[in-house]
Computed example of a mutant assay.
Amino acid sequence: MFSKAIISFALAASALANVFITSPVATSTFAAGQQATINWQDDGMSPNLASFGASLVGIYTGNANQQTLLQTINPSVDVSTSSSISFTPDGSIGPDSSEYFVRFTSLSLKDAANPQFPAEAFSAKFSMTGMTGTFNSTVQNEINGQSTAPIGGTATASASVSMKTVSTSSTASASGSKTSTSATATATTTKTGAAGKVGITGITCFVGAAASLLGAMLL
């Protein structure tokens, strides 16, 4: 099991490509019912934002192997023509917690290394307050599983993630997404490949970085 220090270092060290999420960061706090803003920019590396294109943006929780969509922020926003989204956090999606993160999922671009999967980018984990909901047991188990499959970052700079969606759990919704229902809100759960890619902008392999770092520390 990796220590928090090892995980944090690996996350900070993995930086490559596309959607660079500048807000929220690890020190951000969104308040339920109050307008919040998500910001991003092109980091100047390939693929660019024009290639990433239209994306589903949502608030999630979970770990690198399994995540649950708690709130859809925008089902299709072109990240190359916009650089921010303002929305109102839904307080019923969970409790006060620092286990939330934003995920961008490209609707057209595929992962260059694994073209059967969509390109994705994740923010750092951030806090939400004034919440009235709860995490059900399935969602809580995902969060508890992050000791071996962490997600998000701890640095003040945004840490986003690209991972490979391979399957889903529970019941299919009308749109084809699978759903996991919490005590107060309907959430979409997606499972991702164990070798999830974690980095500041989303195209670096976390497992390789963490393993290399661990190996160096054991020498």
Rank of each mutant, 00 (worst) to 15 (best):
F2C: 03
K4R: 14
I7C: 06
I7A: 11
I7V: 15
S8V: 13
F9A: 15
A10E: 09
A10I: 12
A10Q: 03
L11V: 11
L11S: 07
A12H: 13
L16T: 10
L16Q: 08
N18D: 01
I21C: 06
I21N: 11
S28Q: 05
A31W: 07
G33Y: 02
Q34L: 03
Q35E: 14
Q35G: 02
A36P: 03
N39L: 10
D43Q: 01
S46W: 02
P47S: 03
L49S: 03
A50L: 11
F52Y: 12
S55E: 03
G58F: 10
G58E: 07
Y60N: 14
G62F: 02
G62C: 06
A64T: 03
Q66I: 15
Q66E: 14
Q67M: 10
L69I: 06
T72E: 12
T72Q: 15
N74A: 10
P75Y: 09
V77K: 01
S82R: 02
S83P: 00
S84T: 01
S86Y: 00
F87A: 02
T88Q: 07
G91R: 05
I93V: 15
D96A: 08
S97Q: 03
S98A: 15
E99S: 13
V102D: 14
T105Y: 02
T105Q: 15
L107H: 05
S108Q: 09
N114E: 14
A119I: 02
A121L: 07
K125D: 08
F126S: 11
M128W: 09
G130T: 07
G133A: 04
G133N: 02
F135S: 04
F135H: 02
F135P: 05
S137K: 04
S137D: 14
V139G: 06
Q140E: 13
N141V: 13
N144V: 11
G145W: 05
S147P: 08
T148W: 05
A149G: 06
A149L: 08
A149H: 10
P150F: 11
P150W: 07
G152L: 07
G152T: 09
G153A: 11
A155I: 13
A157K: 10
S158E: 12
A159N: 12
A159I: 11
S162M: 08
S162H: 01
S167A: 14
S169H: 05
S170M: 06
S170V: 13
S173C: 10
S173F: 07
A174E: 12
S175I: 01
S175R: 00
S180P: 04
S182C: 08
A185N: 15
A187D: 04
T188M: 13
T190Y: 08
T192Q: 05
T192E: 10
T192R: 12
G193S: 14
A194F: 01
A195I: 05
G199P: 00
I203V: 04
I203L: 04
T204R: 00
T204G: 00
G208E: 06
A209F: 04
A210Q: 05
A211V: 09
A211I: 12
S212K: 02
L214N: 15
L214D: 13
L214C: 08
G215D: 13
